[in-house]
């Protein structure tokens, strides 16, 4: 049999791309692997040199400590309330602001749009004191609302920008058709634009949620009472002046990582675009 003539594939050879990708994935996943592994090791195994790659007797003891002998469950609940609250609030406000920026022309729009980002430019250290003063005046220190509002301020600017560009990419004819069909502006937004913006909404949601979930400095300053402390603070609490319970830190880290992982996996389908396929030609 003659071998059919084939075109040479351009670029790097396949085995190089494959081994490169595998290496990259391994490097990225190693910390997670180490985290999960360490969370099931006994204290003695944790400090063994050279490190043990597979614990002789995996233990759930660290998880028991975290779940029953620490404040972590309470902090977990706090984190959920604060992250969900601020994400929801940011999403609602961002939807309306972005729709305005994307669909209407008004005086000072470019100025306002760039002004939205100014907040994002200020370093954390610069705004932390003014925010604290403001929260104290409003009696919001050590409350859920305090952190929810602060986190909303942090995530809103980028959310508005992300959604604005997403809305702009939805063909305006669709809304015109809806208007002709008798829809009001709000009906256009809720029945046409939003359903088609699910991938955009999902990205904004994940961005806002992850940002607030992982935030440390603001939580440290504005939530000093254990009734509102969040998970990152809880992790830090395992380190005391004299020692650090690394097993518990790792177990708590796993607990803290799970919601994010679940969120990403459940939203994965939405990140794949193509929702407007078939709407208009081309």
């Amino acid at each position: 049999m003659n071998k059919l003539p084939t075109l040479k594939r351009p670029g790097l050879p396949g085995w190089l791309i494959l081994s490169g990708s595998v290496l990259l994935v391994l490097v990225c996943l190693f910390p997670f692997w180490w985290m999960v592994l360490s969370s099931v090791k006994t204290l003695r195994e944790l400090y063994t040199v050279p490190p043990i790659w597979w614990p002789a007797a995996p233990t759930w003891e660290n998880y028991r400590t975290v779940l029953f002998d620490s404040n972590i469950p309470r902090y977990f609940l706090n984190s959920i309330i604060i992250s969900v609250g601020s994400t929801g609030l940011a999403l609602v406000l961002a939807i309306f602001a972005s729709y305005g920026f994307a669909r209407f022309n008004f005086k000072g729009k470019p100025l306002l749009q760039s002004f939205v980002l100014v907040g994002q430019l200020l370093p954390t250290a610069a705004i932390i004191v003014p925010l604290f003063v403001t929260l104290r005046v409003l009696n919001l220190v050590n409350t859920y609302w305090g952190l929810i509002l602060v986190y909303m301020i942090i995530t809103l600017p980028l959310s508005v920008w992300m959604l604005t560009s997403y809305f702009k990419n939805i063909p305006v004819e669709l809304e015109e058709a809806a208007i002709i069909d008798g829809a009001s502006r709000l009906e256009c937004l809720f029945r046409i634009t939003l359903p088609l913006s699910l991938p955009g909404l999902a990205s904004v949601m994940v961005y806002a949620f992850v940002t607030t979930w992982n935030e440390f400095i603001f939580a440290l300053c504005f939530a000093t009472d254990s009734s509102v402390k969040t998970l990152p603070i809880g992790l830090a609490e395992f380190s005391t002046e004299f020692n650090t319970d690394w097993g518990a830190v790792m177990a708590a880290s796993v607990v803290m990582t799970l919601p994010i992982a679940i969120l990403f996996l459940s939203m994965q389908r939405l990140f794949v675009g193509g929702l407007t396929a078939g709407a208009t030609k081309g």
């Binding site: 063909p171 669709l174 015109e176 058709a177 002709i180 008798g182 078939g278």
Partner: peptide
Amino acid sequence: PKERDIAMVFQSYALYPHMTVEKNMGFS
């Protein structure tokens, strides 16, 4: 527009991509 009792067909069709044909036609 909705008070004018008109209907319009767009160059790009402007069909609602997240609705079936039946829903598209019945939307108004």
